[in-house]
Design a protein around this nucleic acid. Structure first.
Lengths: 231, 231
DNA sequence: TGTGTGTATTGATATATATCAATGCAGATT
DNA sequence: AATCTGCATTGATATATATCAATACACACA
């Protein structure tokens, strides 16, 4: 866990948040002075639902999963975390608590920036504040539409949507290795793991995807999109 | 629809947003110069999903319903709108579009404030920006937990939760007249109208509520809370 | 007073989906 | 090679919930 760092300065960091572009050089240096770094192995928890938010987290590389532990020990996965995105959560400006857990899916190098510093900059730099507002808004809107989708779509539609999410937004490729177990895919798409298996089998039989165990290939994206839209 | 106004100035308005307290007198006056007012009858649409956001809306009195029109013409109600709350939606800082519809449930007097003015003030007054951030965050967190509840609770739990929402947050009393039809209650709690009827009947038979048609009385709040927590 | 219109209610049935139980399979460990 | 462990798969079954259809009821209005 103790390791020193490829990323030595925020100035040239490739993994940072786009909103940092709204900061002056001095402000960015201030951020840089208040960061630290840590490594995580797959399965390790980076922060835990319920714990206080001391820092904003950015993944320098690797991926993680964001999930809520709900009623009855059931988990609901919110999404996959990767670089360039602020991971802080809506609790930052409400109760200063994490409302979900972040766990590493792969080897992860994470960057921690003191939240007090970011909040200070929100008050100092209004463009940065606006960027923060945009970020929170985008995520809220996202949650919104996932909510709608879970309320109104049937399983096939949700699974299609999930595959498109993984291909388009996470792996940015129609061919990728599945990071998630069937159990986890179920937590992400809101269904039982057995249902995941059956639906992936359906998609395979209909030649919409090719599923050679961890290797996924989307064969018919239009059809998948169609199923997602109204499945 | 054309009517002039009991509320003549924002300074002494009882229905305003708490974040306006972060504005200076001059700034508040500026807001006031950029507002207008309109009356709506029950059922009338105040703004519509998809349309551009030109103004933030505040209800001076009366109540409205916020809902998304989703797939297959099914509606999903997000919540009830009432005074003192900013109604703008997460689209403000994303695509400048409304992502849901606001329709009057009762007679409504609404106040419209130009969104450009609020955005300008966000850049000018960092405390106001922070207040905005807090508002968006709170709502995001809310959506979050409703999402969780819809994913994991069964119908009785969701209906109990809905009744508690109406009693605690909307009417602020355990006795109230139901604003919503069974259909609408279903859209709010995520179930078919027939299920609403059956569950309310169950609650009545178990003496958890008394339901004399539009008149609702919560008799056993602890039990309702219990059902909500784990139903 | 009667007719219509929309909502509420009820019971019967269909369907999606979860749960349960058994088996298979692959990689780790001895 | 044999055993273990965790995950994937499959089929059988249970359950929650939606849908459909019929009826009842309340309120507007002719």
């Amino acid at each position: 866990m103790v390791e020193n760092c490829i990323v030595s300065s925020c100035t040239d960091c490739e993994s940072g948040w786009e909103n940092f572009e709204n900061l002056t050089e001095d402000e960015l240096r201030y951020v840089c002075e208040n960061r630290s770094q840590a490594m995580f192995r797959p399965g390790e928890i980076i922060f835990k639902q319920g714990s206080p938010i001391s820092s904003a987290v950015f993944l320098i590389n690797g991926m993680g999963k964001l999930y809520i532990e709900g009623y009855d020990n059931k988990k609901m996965m919110i999404g996959i975390a990767k670089q360039k995105r602020l991971i802080a959560g809506p609790g930052t400006y409400v109760d200063n608590r994490h409302h979900y857990t972040l766990a590493a899916l792969t080897d992860v190098k994470a960057c921690f920036i003191k939240m007090d510093v970011l909040k200070e900059l929100v008050l100092k730099n209004s463009k940065f504040a606006e960027g923060f507002l945009i970020d929170v808004s985008k995520k809220a809107l996202n949650t919104f539409y996932r909510f709608l989708s879970h309320s109104q779509k049937k399983m096939h539609g949700r699974m299609a949507e999930t595959l498109l999410y993984l291909a388009n937004l996470i792996h940015e490729s129609d061919t990728f290795d599945m990071l998630l177990s069937r159990q986890e895919l179920g937590e992400l798409s809101g269904m039982a793991k057995e249902s995941v298996v059956r639906i992936l089998k359906d998609f395979s039989e209909d030649h919409i995807i090719e599923d050679k165990c961890p290797h996924i290939k989307i064969l018919d994206k239009e059809k998948l999109q169609l199923i997602s839209n109204m499945g």
